[in-house]
Amino acid sequence: MSEKKKLRVATTSLAGCFGCHMSFLDIDERLFTLLEHVDFDRSPLTDIKTVTPGTDIGIIEGGLCNAENVHVLREFRANCKVLIALGACAINGGLPAQRNSLSLPAIFDEVYHSGFGLTNSLIPNDPELPLVLDQVHPIHEVVKVDYFVPGCPPSGDAIWKVLTDLLAGKEPTLQHGLMHYD
């Protein structure tokens, strides 16, 4: 059997809930088939902290709600040949973007000062904390994104379909039943 070179895949969750990564694991035993074709680079599955230059596929869950999200996204774009937006939040900001019509001071006030049951309220300002963006943005508004997989989360079957289409060198498509925005 000829050893075909494995593709290197990196994944991350930005302003997401890890639901898309959980759904990714829903491909179940097909993970073994996938591992015949790919190696994982930076990912919550490996705990590697940086993306290796020349990585073939980067998969991004979640949108951009703070400066660190933007930094990580740019690192993925700089080091991945193909970038995939996985799930509703990466595609349109999703649930976190529903804060976009509110001002940041109003949100901080509600969350840290005037909200129910708060005592000794302080807005966290440790220099290690990434600065919050004034609005949550989908990732294609900051870097070029090659493919999008909609869904909240996309089903394991939808993720599998897109990955196998890509591995087969085809343009990924989702037919009725796999294409979902909810």
Partner: peptide, 24 residues
Amino acid sequence: YCPSCEKSGDCQLQATAYHLGMMS
């Protein structure tokens, strides 16, 4: 925001976007 919309699945905008293969 389809995930939190009561009309999701019954929405003609969403269904039309599916029909047209709107991935983003």
